[in-house]
Protein backbone atom coordinates (compact mmCIF):
# COMPACT_ATOMS: atom_id res chain seq x y z
CA UNK A 1 0.00 0.00 0.00
CA UNK A 2 1.45 3.38 -1.00
CA UNK A 3 1.47 6.41 1.25
CA UNK A 4 -1.25 7.97 -0.88
CA UNK A 5 -3.40 4.87 -0.47
CA UNK A 6 -2.84 4.93 3.28
CA UNK A 7 -3.80 8.56 3.40
CA UNK A 8 -6.92 8.06 1.30
CA UNK A 9 -7.99 5.14 3.49
CA UNK A 10 -8.08 7.62 6.35
CA UNK A 11 -10.59 9.78 4.48
CA UNK A 12 -13.55 7.88 5.76
CA UNK A 13 -14.59 10.08 8.62
CA UNK A 14 -18.02 11.51 8.00
CA UNK A 15 -18.82 15.19 8.13
CA UNK A 16 -18.90 16.33 11.71
CA UNK A 17 -16.92 17.64 14.59
CA UNK A 18 -14.53 14.71 14.61
CA UNK A 19 -13.46 15.00 10.99
CA UNK A 20 -9.97 16.22 10.21
CA UNK A 21 -9.47 19.92 9.63
CA UNK A 22 -8.07 19.28 6.16
CA UNK A 23 -8.27 16.09 4.10
CA UNK A 24 -6.45 16.03 0.79
CA UNK A 25 -6.95 12.97 -1.36
CA UNK A 26 -4.88 12.22 -4.48
CA UNK A 27 -4.76 15.89 -5.38
CA UNK A 28 -3.39 16.78 -8.82
CA UNK A 29 -3.03 20.15 -10.52
CA UNK A 30 -1.77 20.36 -14.07
CA UNK A 31 -1.14 23.71 -15.77
CA UNK A 32 -0.76 22.94 -19.48
CA UNK A 33 2.32 20.67 -19.48
CA UNK A 34 3.35 21.30 -15.86
CA UNK A 35 2.24 19.08 -12.98
CA UNK A 36 2.34 21.70 -10.23
CA UNK A 37 0.86 19.26 -7.72
CA UNK A 38 1.30 15.58 -8.44
CA UNK A 39 -0.98 13.17 -6.62
CA UNK A 40 -0.59 14.21 -2.99
CA UNK A 41 -2.65 13.03 -0.04
CA UNK A 42 -2.55 14.07 3.60
CA UNK A 43 -4.87 14.72 6.48
CA UNK A 44 -4.42 17.33 9.22
CA UNK A 45 -5.87 16.74 12.67
CA UNK A 46 -7.68 19.62 14.34
CA UNK A 47 -5.69 21.79 16.69
CA UNK A 48 -2.34 21.08 15.05
CA UNK A 49 0.22 23.29 13.35
CA UNK A 50 1.67 21.84 10.18
CA UNK A 51 4.49 23.29 8.11
CA UNK A 52 4.49 22.92 4.35
CA UNK A 53 8.08 23.09 3.18
CA UNK A 54 9.64 23.10 -0.23
CA UNK A 55 11.69 25.16 -2.61
CA UNK A 56 10.28 27.57 -5.13
CA UNK A 57 7.95 25.75 -7.52
CA UNK A 58 7.50 22.80 -5.15
CA UNK A 59 3.71 23.21 -5.25
CA UNK A 60 3.09 24.68 -1.77
CA UNK A 61 1.14 27.75 -2.87
CA UNK A 62 -0.92 25.79 -5.40
CA UNK A 63 -1.74 23.22 -2.72
CA UNK A 64 -2.87 25.92 -0.28
CA UNK A 65 -4.83 27.66 -3.05
CA UNK A 66 -6.68 24.41 -3.82
CA UNK A 67 -7.46 23.96 -0.13
CA UNK A 68 -8.88 27.49 -0.08
CA UNK A 69 -10.86 26.92 -3.28
CA UNK A 70 -8.98 29.63 -5.20
CA UNK A 71 -7.67 27.04 -7.65
CA UNK A 72 -9.66 24.06 -8.94
CA UNK A 73 -7.85 20.71 -8.86
CA UNK A 74 -7.34 18.77 -12.08
CA UNK A 75 -8.27 15.68 -10.08
CA UNK A 76 -8.52 14.56 -6.50
CA UNK A 77 -10.55 15.81 -3.57
CA UNK A 78 -10.22 18.33 -0.77
CA UNK A 79 -12.34 18.45 2.37
CA UNK A 80 -12.07 21.34 4.79
CA UNK A 81 -13.66 21.12 8.25
CA UNK A 82 -15.68 18.20 6.93
CA UNK A 83 -16.94 19.95 3.80
CA UNK A 84 -16.07 19.33 0.16
CA UNK A 85 -14.18 22.17 -1.47
CA UNK A 86 -15.08 24.08 -3.52
CA UNK A 87 -18.62 22.67 -3.77
CA UNK A 88 -19.50 23.37 -0.13
CA UNK A 89 -17.32 26.42 0.33
CA UNK A 90 -20.30 28.49 1.52
CA UNK A 91 -20.41 26.27 4.63
CA UNK A 92 -16.80 26.70 5.53
CA UNK A 93 -15.33 30.02 4.29
CA UNK A 94 -16.67 31.88 7.31
CA UNK A 95 -14.83 29.48 9.63
CA UNK A 96 -11.41 29.79 8.04
CA UNK A 97 -9.10 32.60 7.00
CA UNK A 98 -5.71 33.15 5.42
CA UNK A 99 -2.75 35.41 4.97
CA UNK A 100 -0.62 35.41 1.86
CA UNK A 101 1.99 37.59 0.18
CA UNK A 102 -0.11 37.25 -2.99
CA UNK A 103 -2.78 39.59 -1.65
CA UNK A 104 -2.82 43.03 -0.03
CA UNK A 105 -5.24 45.04 2.00
CA UNK A 106 -6.64 48.14 0.22
CA UNK A 107 -3.93 50.81 0.57
CA UNK A 108 -6.01 53.98 0.83
CA UNK A 109 -8.22 52.66 3.61
CA UNK A 110 -7.14 52.94 7.21
CA UNK A 111 -6.38 49.85 9.24
CA UNK A 112 -9.60 50.32 11.19
CA UNK A 113 -11.67 50.69 7.99
CA UNK A 114 -10.13 47.56 6.48
CA UNK A 115 -10.75 45.52 9.61
CA UNK A 116 -14.31 46.87 9.79
CA UNK A 117 -15.05 45.77 6.24
CA UNK A 118 -13.62 42.30 6.68
CA UNK A 119 -15.32 41.99 10.05
CA UNK A 120 -18.64 42.75 8.38
CA UNK A 121 -17.93 40.29 5.57
CA UNK A 122 -17.31 37.60 8.18
CA UNK A 123 -20.33 38.69 10.27
CA UNK A 124 -18.19 39.23 13.37
CA UNK A 125 -20.23 39.91 16.49
CA UNK A 126 -19.26 42.99 18.53
CA UNK A 127 -16.96 44.11 15.74
CA UNK A 128 -15.60 47.22 17.42
CA UNK A 129 -14.73 45.12 20.48
CA UNK A 130 -13.03 42.52 18.31
CA UNK A 131 -11.00 45.19 16.49
CA UNK A 132 -9.97 46.72 19.82
CA UNK A 133 -8.91 43.29 21.07
CA UNK A 134 -6.86 42.58 17.93
CA UNK A 135 -5.32 46.04 18.13
CA UNK A 136 -4.18 45.26 21.67
CA UNK A 137 -3.02 41.72 20.87
CA UNK A 138 -1.11 42.67 17.73
CA UNK A 139 -0.02 46.11 18.89
CA UNK A 140 -1.90 48.02 16.17
CA UNK A 141 -3.21 50.91 18.28
CA UNK A 142 -0.49 53.31 17.23
CA UNK A 143 -1.49 53.16 13.56
CA UNK A 144 -5.10 51.96 13.66
CA UNK A 145 -6.31 55.13 11.91
CA UNK A 146 -3.46 55.34 9.43
CA UNK A 147 -3.81 54.32 5.76
CA UNK A 148 -2.57 50.82 5.06
CA UNK A 149 -0.34 52.21 2.30
CA UNK A 150 1.58 54.31 4.82
CA UNK A 151 2.61 51.37 7.01
CA UNK A 152 5.98 49.65 7.13
CA UNK A 153 6.28 46.08 5.85
CA UNK A 154 6.21 44.74 9.40
CA UNK A 155 3.14 46.77 10.31
CA UNK A 156 1.36 45.58 7.15
CA UNK A 157 2.10 41.97 8.06
CA UNK A 158 0.59 42.49 11.50
CA UNK A 159 -2.49 44.08 9.93
CA UNK A 160 -2.78 41.16 7.50
CA UNK A 161 -2.57 38.81 10.47
CA UNK A 162 -5.28 40.82 12.25
CA UNK A 163 -7.49 40.44 9.16
CA UNK A 164 -6.75 36.68 9.14
CA UNK A 165 -7.80 36.43 12.79
CA UNK A 166 -10.79 38.79 12.64
CA UNK A 167 -13.33 35.94 12.55
CA UNK A 168 -11.45 33.77 15.09
CA UNK A 169 -10.99 31.06 12.45
CA UNK A 170 -10.93 27.37 13.24
CA UNK A 171 -8.54 26.93 10.33
CA UNK A 172 -5.79 29.36 9.43
CA UNK A 173 -3.79 29.07 6.22
CA UNK A 174 -0.60 31.10 6.19
CA UNK A 175 1.77 31.57 3.29
CA UNK A 176 5.11 32.97 4.52
CA UNK A 177 3.58 34.65 7.59
CA UNK A 178 6.83 36.20 8.81
CA UNK A 179 8.44 37.12 5.50
CA UNK A 180 9.79 40.69 5.52
CA UNK A 181 9.65 40.92 9.32
CA UNK A 182 12.64 41.70 11.49
CA UNK A 183 13.65 38.84 13.83
CA UNK A 184 12.06 40.45 16.87
CA UNK A 185 8.69 41.04 15.20
CA UNK A 186 8.81 37.62 13.54
CA UNK A 187 9.39 35.98 16.90
CA UNK A 188 6.55 37.98 18.38
CA UNK A 189 4.18 36.89 15.56
CA UNK A 190 5.14 33.24 16.11
CA UNK A 191 4.39 33.56 19.80
CA UNK A 192 1.02 35.03 18.95
CA UNK A 193 0.19 32.20 16.54
CA UNK A 194 1.11 29.62 19.15
CA UNK A 195 -1.02 31.36 21.74
CA UNK A 196 -3.94 31.60 19.29
CA UNK A 197 -3.74 27.90 18.47
CA UNK A 198 -3.76 26.99 22.17
CA UNK A 199 -6.58 29.36 23.06
CA UNK A 200 -8.90 28.33 20.20
CA UNK A 201 -7.72 24.78 19.39
CA UNK A 202 -7.24 26.16 15.88
CA UNK A 203 -5.59 24.28 13.05
CA UNK A 204 -2.79 26.08 11.26
CA UNK A 205 -1.18 25.16 7.96
CA UNK A 206 1.75 27.35 7.09
CA UNK A 207 4.05 27.45 4.11
CA UNK A 208 7.42 28.82 5.02
CA UNK A 209 11.04 29.02 3.98
CA UNK A 210 12.04 29.83 7.54
CA UNK A 211 13.18 26.50 8.98
CA UNK A 212 13.65 27.83 12.51
CA UNK A 213 10.06 29.02 12.42
CA UNK A 214 8.86 25.59 11.33
CA UNK A 215 10.94 23.84 13.98
CA UNK A 216 9.57 26.10 16.68
CA UNK A 217 5.91 26.14 15.66
CA UNK A 218 5.05 22.93 13.88
CA UNK A 219 3.90 19.59 15.23
CA UNK A 220 4.33 18.15 11.79
CA UNK A 221 6.19 18.93 8.60
CA UNK A 222 5.25 18.05 5.04
CA UNK A 223 8.13 18.49 2.61
CA UNK A 224 7.21 18.95 -1.04
CA UNK A 225 9.40 18.73 -4.09
CA UNK A 226 8.31 19.07 -7.72
CA UNK A 227 4.67 18.76 -6.76
CA UNK A 228 5.04 15.58 -4.71
CA UNK A 229 5.29 14.90 -1.00
CA UNK A 230 8.91 14.02 -0.30
CA UNK A 231 8.53 13.49 3.44
CA UNK A 232 5.85 13.85 6.12
CA UNK A 233 6.50 13.52 9.84
CA UNK A 234 7.29 15.41 13.03
CA UNK A 235 10.29 17.77 12.78
CA UNK A 236 12.32 15.62 15.19
CA UNK A 237 11.57 12.41 13.31
CA UNK A 238 12.51 13.96 9.99
CA UNK A 239 15.78 15.37 11.34
CA UNK A 240 16.60 11.99 12.87
CA UNK A 241 15.81 10.20 9.62
CA UNK A 242 18.14 12.45 7.66
CA UNK A 243 20.69 12.34 10.47
CA UNK A 244 20.66 16.15 10.64
CA UNK A 245 20.50 18.66 13.48
CA UNK A 246 18.33 21.24 11.80
CA UNK A 247 15.47 21.31 9.34
CA UNK A 248 17.49 23.68 7.21
CA UNK A 249 20.05 20.94 6.61
CA UNK A 250 17.23 18.52 5.80
CA UNK A 251 15.76 21.07 3.41
CA UNK A 252 19.07 21.36 1.58
CA UNK A 253 19.40 17.57 1.42
CA UNK A 254 15.95 17.27 -0.11
CA UNK A 255 16.44 20.21 -2.48
CA UNK A 256 19.77 18.79 -3.70
CA UNK A 257 18.64 15.20 -3.84
CA UNK A 258 20.89 13.99 -0.99
CA UNK A 259 19.84 11.63 1.77
CA UNK A 260 23.01 12.20 3.89
CA UNK A 261 23.69 8.53 4.24
CA UNK A 262 20.25 7.70 5.54
CA UNK A 263 18.85 4.57 3.93
CA UNK A 264 16.85 5.86 0.99
CA UNK A 265 13.97 3.50 1.74
CA UNK A 266 13.70 5.12 5.13
CA UNK A 267 12.96 8.38 3.44
CA UNK A 268 9.32 8.14 2.60
Amino acid sequence: MTENDKASSRLTVADGALSAAIEVDHLVKVYKQTRAVDDISFSLARGTITGLLGGNGAGKTTTIAMIMGLVLPTSGRVRVLGHRMPEESADVLGRMNFESPYVDMPMRLTVRQNLTIFGKLYAVKDLSGRIAQLADDLDLNEFLDRSNGKLSAGQKTRVALAKALINQPELLLLDEPTASLDPDTADWVRAHLEAYRKAHNATILLASHNMLEVERLCDRVIIMKRGRIEDDDTPDAIMARYNRDTLEEVFLDVARGRSNGAPREAVR
Binding site: M68, G69, G94, N97, Y102, P106, F118
Partner: peptide
Protein backbone atom coordinates in the same frame (compact mmCIF):
# COMPACT_ATOMS: atom_id res chain seq x y z
CA UNK B 1 -10.86 47.26 -10.91
CA UNK B 2 -10.06 48.89 -7.56
CA UNK B 3 -9.95 45.35 -6.13
CA UNK B 4 -7.58 44.20 -8.83
CA UNK B 5 -5.32 47.26 -8.48
CA UNK B 6 -5.29 46.83 -4.69
CA UNK B 7 -4.55 43.06 -5.02
CA UNK B 8 -7.52 42.56 -2.73
CA UNK B 9 -9.50 40.19 -4.95
CA UNK B 10 -7.95 37.11 -3.28
CA UNK B 11 -9.10 38.33 0.13
CA UNK B 12 -12.64 38.70 -1.20
CA UNK B 13 -12.60 35.37 -3.03
CA UNK B 14 -11.57 33.65 0.18
CA UNK B 15 -14.24 35.39 2.23
CA UNK B 16 -17.89 34.27 2.56
CA UNK B 17 -18.86 36.94 0.01
CA UNK B 18 -20.87 35.38 -2.84
Amino acid sequence: LEEMWARNIGNLMMSPLK
